[in-house]
């Protein structure tokens, strides 16, 4: 599979390494020149491009048309949403995955914005942590409401 990752920070480079191990073809777009050196070390087999992932010309030059999956994992939610919109509606990417940085922004990560799968890191982590904490002893609930909520 051909995977295009936009955002080569901690998440993007780790993901690239993982996908390369599984034998996928990986292209990474990263805007910070300082991150490029680290990226070449963590994901040596990936094609790395320096530039903005919201630049349609760069996406095209990077072969977005050929990608089976586009993954937007920059640290800025609005940037990820611009990338997902472009990937889906301008370049017809078959599968679009995005990272939600701020859980309050998760409402925007919908198919309308080109997102097939939204991964909400903080939310996942919070739930996993919450699961490790034992439930408090049962408490007497207040009187049940008569109307009910149907669920």
């Amino acid at each position: 599979m051909r995977i295009m990752i936009i955002g080569g920070g901690a998440v993007g480079s780790y993901l690239a390494g993982l996908l390369l191990q599984q034998g996928h073809h990986v292209t990474i777009i990263e805007i910070r020149e300082t991150a490029m050196a680290t990226l070449r070390l963590t994901a040596p087999g990936a094609q790395c491009l320096l530039g903005s992932g919201t630049d349609p010309e760069l996406l095209e030059a990077a072969g977005v048309h050929l990608a089976d999956t586009v993954v937007a994992v920059t640290g800025t939610d609005e940037t990820n949403l611009v990338i997902t919109s472009l990937a889906r509606f301008a370049f017809d990417a078959p599968r679009v995955v995005a990272r939600v940085n701020n859980p309050h922004n998760s409402w925007m990560f919908t198919p309308t914005m080109g997102v097939d799968f939204a991964l909400n890191q903080a939310d996942l982590l919070a739930h996993l942590i919450a699961e490790t904490i034992p439930s408090p002893p049962a408490q007497r609930l207040s009187e049940p409401s008569t109307g009910g909520d149907g669920g």
Binding site: V82, M108, T112, M113
Partner: peptide, 16 residues
């Protein structure tokens, strides 16, 4: 002043 914010806001306003 942020292009990305403006694009996302405009798309949401229009579509959502």
């Amino acid at each position: 002043p942020n292009d990305d914010v403006n694009i996302v806001a405009a798309r949401l306003a229009r579509l959502a």
